Amino acid sequence: MKKEHIEEIHYIRAFAFLAVVLQHSIGHYIFVPEAHLADGVAFTFLLLISKFAVPMFIFITGLVLFYNYDGRLNYWTFMKKRFSDIIVPYLFWSFIYLLIQNHMDVLSAINRFGEVFLTGKASYHLWYVIMIIQLYITFPISRFIIMQAKRWIRTPLAVYTAFSILGIVYILLMTYPIHVTAARWNIPLITPILTKYADRNALNFFYYFALGALAGLTITHWRAWLSRHAGWIYSLFIVMSGIMAYRTISSFGLLPALKTEYSQLLLLRPVTALFLISSVFATYLFCMRVSNIANSPTRRVVTFISHYSYGAYLVHAFVLGLSYWLPDYFSSSINVTLRTIIAFVIASFLSVMLTYVLSKLPMGHIMTGLRRVQSKTPKSNSTSATM
């Protein structure tokens, strides 16, 4: 039987991509000398409304995997598709970024390639791909565990209890991070994974994946539950946003000179984790409702961005480097916040359009993970597991 088309995933994927570009645009302007306190406050709120990106990408990965693969899993076919659609474009762009870093010296890029392709260090944004690949590789294990747990977790009370306990465990891991103990162990390979590369260790994001699995296995009930508790969900998100804003802005230094810092918003912190969990519920609810009321032009634009989002994610760091030129040219007449927003809009548009153009080339699949289609309108499956 053909599965239901999950329309809201297009909106989640598109908005999450835009949120990533916004965060990285802010990252460029956040410490420029001409930034004022007002810019710091504006950046705080812009970061808060865009921080949902990584948790939501992980969430929808869990959702679509458990939604699509509820029957027999052919692991070879499964990983072959991920290698073709996810890993190959990642390797291609990793090499491109290495070429840029090494001033187009091919030999230097080749020599460094083996060093960085397993860690995602060819560019600042590629850590996410390394982390998400781990979820694909270990999917049969996580699938087995969750499907076994499903036999015991049958009632709403059991679901609430299980995910509350799991959430507490997750927050405790953020509070008493395992990397402290791992550093003392100093075990080859294991210690670096848990310390130096903790931000790209999939175990540090497992709760969002588990929530996605819950949604994928119970999509109708998941939607109904969100709708019933919309008021509480939005209220919790607003309260947590206020707490995070206060913690961040109160950490700013004003004397002898303005000093802004945003470590309170790092992903692997306990309070941030609470905020991000609330953002998962709020973002899904928002996208679900927007998808229900959006008109045809909006749906086409959102579907277009969603379809090309993975390739656009890979290329956006390169495009951002070019996008700063225009707003910086007018730096004497516009403030830093406005320059950030201009760079974000330019980079978002160019990243998606460049991915669209590259996907039409004979070797476009290698660069974008997308196969060429005959139709002028992208036939993007809402349950695709790519970004």
Rank of each mutant, 00 (worst) to 15 (best):
Y160D: 10
T161Y: 11
A162E: 14
A162V: 07
F163A: 12
I165S: 09
L166I: 10
L166G: 14
G167W: 06
G167N: 07
V169N: 03
Y170H: 14
I171S: 04
I171L: 15
L172M: 12
L172Q: 08
M174T: 06
M174L: 05
Y176A: 04
Y176N: 03
Y176V: 09
P177E: 04
P177Y: 05
V180P: 00
V180G: 00
V180I: 15
T181F: 08
T181K: 07
A182W: 05
A183Q: 11
A183F: 07
R184H: 09
N186V: 02
I187D: 02
P188K: 05
I190D: 01
I190F: 12
I190Y: 06
T191P: 03
P192G: 05
L194C: 01
L194V: 01
T195S: 07
Y197N: 08
A198S: 10
D199W: 13
D199T: 14
N204T: 10
F206A: 11
L211V: 07
A213H: 01
L214E: 06
A215H: 11
A215C: 06
L217C: 06
T218G: 14
T218L: 00
T218W: 09
T218V: 00
I219Q: 14
I219R: 15
T220C: 00
H221G: 10
W225S: 15
W225V: 13
L226R: 12
S227Q: 13
S227H: 09
R228W: 02
A230V: 11
A230C: 04
W232C: 04
W232E: 06
Y234E: 02
Y234C: 07
L236E: 12
F237D: 14
F237L: 05
I238S: 10
M240C: 12
S241C: 08
S241N: 04
S241V: 03
G242Y: 02
I243R: 08
M244G: 09
M244C: 07
A245S: 14
Y246N: 04
Y246E: 06
I249T: 06
I249C: 07
S250Y: 02
S250L: 01
S251N: 10
F252Q: 05
L255V: 09
P256C: 10
P256Y: 01
A257P: 00
E261F: 00
E261L: 01
Y262H: 04
Y262I: 02
L265W: 05
L267Q: 11
L267T: 14
L268M: 11
L268Q: 15
L268E: 13
R269A: 03
R269E: 12
R269T: 11
P270M: 02
P270N: 04
V271T: 12
V271G: 01
T272V: 07
T272R: 07
A273P: 06
L274F: 13
L274G: 14
I277R: 09
S278M: 03
S279W: 04
S279C: 08
S279E: 12
A282L: 02
A282F: 11
T283G: 14
T283P: 05
Y284H: 14
F286V: 12
M288W: 09
M288Y: 14
M288Q: 15
R289K: 15
V290L: 15
V290P: 00
V290K: 08
N292R: 12
I293L: 08
A294Y: 04
N295A: 08
S296I: 06
P297I: 10
R299D: 12
R299A: 11
V301S: 14
